[in-house]
């Protein structure tokens, strides 16, 4: 019979990422840079809402955007065109998420010493990005009205890890069966500490409140 040598490990697989994320968070804090991780499903209007928000804040703060995508440079280009701020496209090679190590490398390439706020626009996906701490100081996610008020029930982890949930496209409320109170209670049941801000990037409703929330974090 073969003899077996066992090496006990007992380590959480996410541990190395969590450690790297904590290091990055400290490093950015020391530099005076505040990073926000923005998550959502594809098509939630993330790039548009983010561009509007940046336009409100860009005279007060030096802002940069890092956009994670599988293939194209469309998002970074769009944000740069709409806001005039510096944007970097990160291609993550087809993975479903970005982790702290990838974020750290991107930060190095991007150069953040001259910035106050960095928005990390994560991959459009409500599952995987929630599992991986990127090293951001705050997590926010965008839930758009057409997606439905039951999304928090279907993707509980995503809603549990967010400090802020933005309910976007509220100008389309009349066309969809979206119950705002139900959406809010579904979110708060999972995450009692979450801030919730309904906005419309199109009409501008709620955008000032959103900017206020960001200012309060700095």
């Amino acid at each position: 019979m073969k003899k077996v040598k066992i090496i006990e490990v007992h380590e959480n697989v996410f541990n190395s990422n969590n450690v790297a994320a904590e290091e990055l968070r400290h490093e950015l804090k020391d530099k005076g840079v505040y990073m926000l991780n923005v998550m959502s499903s594809p098509g939630s209007g993330k790039t548009t809402a983010l561009s509007k928000l940046i336009n409100i804040l860009k005279d007060e703060y030096r802002i940069g955007v890092m956009d994670v995508d599988i293939e194209t440079s469309l998002d970074a280009q769009k944000v740069a065109d709409l806001t005039g701020v510096r944007a970097l496209q990160i291609h993550n090679g087809g993975l479903c998420h970005i982790d702290a190590e990838m974020t750290s490398k991107a930060i190095e390439e991007f150069g953040v010493d001259d910035l106050d706020i960095v928005f990390l626009e994560n991959i459009g996906n409500l599952v995987c990005p929630a599992e991986f701490d990127t090293g951001a100081h705050r997590n926010m996610m965008i839930l758009s009205v057409p997606e439905g008020d039951d999304k928090p029930l279907k993707y509980p982890l995503m809603f549990s890890v967010c400090d802020l949930v933005i309910i976007s496209k509220i100008d389309t409320m009349e066309f969809f069966d979206f119950d705002m109170d139900k959406a809010k209670s579904n979110i708060l049941r999972l995450n009692p500490k979450a801030s919730i801000i309904p906005v419309s990037a199109k009409t501008g409703e709620g955008m000032e409140e959103l900017a206020k929330w960001i200012r309060a974090q700095l």
């Binding site: 073969k2 003899k3 040598k5 090496i7 006990e8 697989v13």
Partner: peptide, 16 residues
């Protein structure tokens, strides 16, 4: 909700 690496094992060739 765990996702841990419990252990890794190596067969001891010499004793085979």
């Amino acid at each position: 909700n765990e996702f841990n690496i419990k252990e890794i094992g190596v067969y001891d060739e010499d004793d085979e």
